[in-house]
Amino acid sequence: MNELQQLGRLVGTWSVTGGASGTTTFEWLDGGHFLVQRGTLVHEGHEVRMTEMIGYEHPFGGERGTEVKSRVYDADGNTLDYVYELDGDELTIWGGSKGSPAYFKGSFSDGGNRLAGDWVWPGGGYQATMVRV
């Protein structure tokens, strides 16, 4: 099973609490090559509506990449790039590229129905918890 397929444990709807709160849903895009996240969260009083495409890059005429990457598109016109890394029950989401000073690091528990951790970036961060609903 490749790393993207392992992220299938995110499929479903989640209640998000902590520094951001709301609901987010993960589902497979037809064909099973991309995981899609759609959510509405409130962070510091601002509503963030977003869609994220998660998968391996496979550019026109090129080889498929080896890292699970994503791009978030939000209703404010922002695009944010991430790299997903799953090791057992520990999920790291790197902001931009692996090793970045901006990242989420959390652990699955409760049979995979809870993911808790911290978003960290230079000068800030917050705790976040997702519980499957």
Rank of each mutant, 00 (worst) to 15 (best):
2 N>K: 01
2 N>A: 00
4 L>N: 13
4 L>D: 03
4 L>S: 04
5 Q>A: 15
7 L>N: 13
7 L>S: 08
12 G>T: 05
12 G>A: 12
12 G>C: 04
12 G>H: 11
14 W>A: 04
15 S>Y: 00
16 V>T: 13
19 G>Y: 12
20 A>R: 12
21 S>Y: 05
22 G>T: 02
22 G>H: 07
25 T>W: 03
27 E>T: 04
29 L>P: 03
32 G>W: 00
33 H>M: 07
34 F>T: 05
34 F>Q: 07
35 L>F: 05
37 Q>F: 03
38 R>N: 10
39 G>K: 05
39 G>E: 04
43 H>S: 04
44 E>F: 00
44 E>K: 15
45 G>M: 09
45 G>A: 12
46 H>R: 15
49 R>E: 13
50 M>D: 15
50 M>G: 14
51 T>Y: 07
55 G>Y: 06
57 E>G: 03
59 P>K: 12
60 F>H: 11
61 G>D: 01
64 R>P: 00
69 K>N: 03
70 S>P: 02
71 R>M: 10
75 A>Q: 10
77 G>S: 05
78 N>P: 06
79 T>N: 02
80 L>N: 13
82 Y>Q: 12
84 Y>M: 02
86 L>S: 10
87 D>Q: 13
89 D>F: 01
92 T>Y: 09
98 K>Q: 12
100 S>Q: 11
100 S>C: 11
101 P>E: 11
106 G>Y: 08
108 F>S: 09
109 S>H: 03
111 G>I: 07
111 G>V: 08
115 L>Y: 11
115 L>M: 09
116 A>G: 04
116 A>I: 02
117 G>S: 13
117 G>W: 10
118 D>H: 10
121 W>D: 07
124 G>H: 05
127 Q>G: 07
127 Q>H: 15
131 V>G: 06
131 V>R: 14
131 V>D: 14
132 R>E: 06
